[in-house]
Design a binder for these strands. Structure first.
Lengths: 143, 143
DNA sequence: CAGGATCCCATAGGATACTG
DNA sequence: CAGTATCCTATGGGATCCTG
């Protein structure tokens, strides 16, 4: 994809142009549902992302306004990645994607309890969880 | 991705392993929202997919149970691609993705009226549209 | 019209080693 | 710990031509 050159005006295409690959959504999953916020935590996920890919994806997510990078207060050599509202707004997409996957894949894996919590009563549970995420973020950023 | 080798048990990862690329969701979009059902119609979409990629993606979508390929009744050399329930079940994902994109992209493009119809009253409109799609499909397949 | 076949390039991504 | 730097391979993908 050429930089800053949209393939079309389509809204779906806009989304795919940003995170239509094998890794970006997994990083966002880690942040949205696994409470992860650092390079080494992402690296430790079971899909085993390579460090060069991880660096590249974090850079894009930053540039596209999905996350904010700050230095850790405790450890100067450590960085923390916080979610923007734009990223948190992807929650409904993840919930639907999860529900679909859970319905159609052959093997049923043990699933993250947070998903289960969000599947029922979506119009209440999702905004509530989004608020939690924003609260955690603001605590870290000291906003 | 190695064939039939899942990177992890994660449900999100399952979905990404199938359609985590720049083209697959656009083909499904064309089928779900644009009423397209043939090779040449997909090829004509404004993102200009290459024929080798299109062939490859259709093959994967077929193998993964997203569509059914049948010979056209009218034209023997023509094939029709119909959506399976598995593909139609992606409707909620598309609707949320569309809503997210529409909220966060800088430029607001003129949008497909079908999306607008599905954004309100989702729990009624989405199943209704899904039923429409299945009806159309069954008419074609003569089921 | 639906694709297959080729050629070729760019990017994705894996593995490993290294640095502040 | 958070990357950078390489090196290498595999795949994605564009362009073009060809065939039943």
């Amino acid at each position: 994809m050429k930089d800053n050159h949209l393939r079309s005006d389509c809204s779906i295409c806009y989304a795919i142009d940003i995170f239509g690959d094998k890794w970006t959504l997994l990083i966002l999953r880690d942040m949205l549902f696994e409470g992860k916020s650092s390079f080494s935590e992402f690296k430790a996920s079971e899909e085993k992302i390579a460090t060069n890919i991880l660096t590249a994806r974090l850079k894009v997510l930053d540039a596209e306004g999905f996350l904010i990078k700050t230095a850790s207060a405790a450890n100067k050599a450590k960085y923390l990645y916080s979610l923007t509202d734009k990223a948190i707004d992807l929650l409904p997409v993840f919930v639907e994607l999860f529900a679909w996957s859970d319905k159609h894949r052959a093997v049923k894996p043990p699933c993250n309890p947070i998903y289960k919590r969000l599947e029922a009563n979506k119009s209440e549970t999702i905004p509530a969880y989004a608020a939690e995420l924003k609260q955690r973020r603001d605590a870290i950023l000291g906003a």
